[in-house]
Design a protein around this nucleic acid. Structure first.
Lengths: 142, 142
DNA sequence: GCTTCAAACAATAATCATTCTAATTTAAAA
DNA sequence: TTTTAAATTAGAATGATTATTGTTTGAAGC
């Protein structure tokens, strides 16, 4: 869990002004699991009455463009946001519509090596994202 | 390129009625590269005047539910459709917004083996889709 | 601490892909 | 040919997202 100071620092370092709305949005992102803009709006509205949904979208777009967070397209067409900006993969359960981050350096090496060997003609790979679709065996708590 | 007969057969075998609209939509899917519903509507309207956009959405949904085609969420949030229903991965160029299918049984085996060894606790993998993000080196023609 | 001003925010209208509704038409089984 | 559930159509409705415009504010410089 990031502190307010850390969050403010990150925002500032990215060249953005530190506002209560932005700090609160990052806190919500940190707290919620792959929330949509709507989820974030609901969460942050409590702290910041009078918050505009448009502001949430603006903030998210700003954070994405500065690569502080990631925007993730989903099966439903609604965009979700990911507090983690470092490279990782995703686990996705279609039934529950739940998404989880999946970090795996060993897998990354495997893929790196594989595509070092096996080039794709005319295409330069910049990033490899694996989507693991399936189902949770046991209940998972939020 | 599938024949009308083949397409009709596929539609019928899936338990759907064979209509001119459906055949034309499948033909368009076959011809275009990962089109959106809008693209398909524009293409098919020529052949079938009076076609309704809603019909295109209905047909696509029906084909997806029968697993004759695939629905692919994209970075922009608009859904694209894939004539290929067999398992495969995707190459995606952010600049041109172009998407291509990527078949690689060797990679599939590699991933299968890897996750046979390395289980993810509490999650049962049903499908693994790799997204290769990057850029085309040379112009690619449609 | 005060001024300044570009950046950020709020309110609200607009957009646009997609879904829904209700009436009509049609594929195909009997 | 008749029948009927399924498919199509037109158009309204939805809902996430974006655009617009006026107001407010963070923070840099005095």
């Amino acid at each position: 869990m990031k502190t307010v100071q850390e969050i403010a620092k990150n925002i500032q370092t990215a060249g953005l002004k530190v506002t209560p709305q932005r700090v609160a949005v990052v806190q919500a992102l940190d707290k919620l699991n792959h929330p949509g803009a709507e989820d974030i709006y609901k969460e942050v509205s409590h702290q910041i009455p009078g918050l505009s949904p448009a502001t949430v979208y603006n903030i998210l777009e700003a954070l994405v463009s500065k690569e502080l967070i990631k925007k993730v397209p989903t099966e439903t067409g609604i965009m979700k946001y990911d507090a983690v900006s470092e490279h990782h993969h995703h686990i996705y359960c279609k039934q529950s519509n739940r998404m989880d981050d999946y970090f795996d350096p060993e897998l990354d090496n495997l893929l790196q090596d594989y595509f070092q060997r096996k080039k794709i003609k005319g295409f330069e790979i910049r990033e490899m994202k694996l989507h693991l679709l399936g189902a949770y065996r046991n209940k998972k708590k939020e």
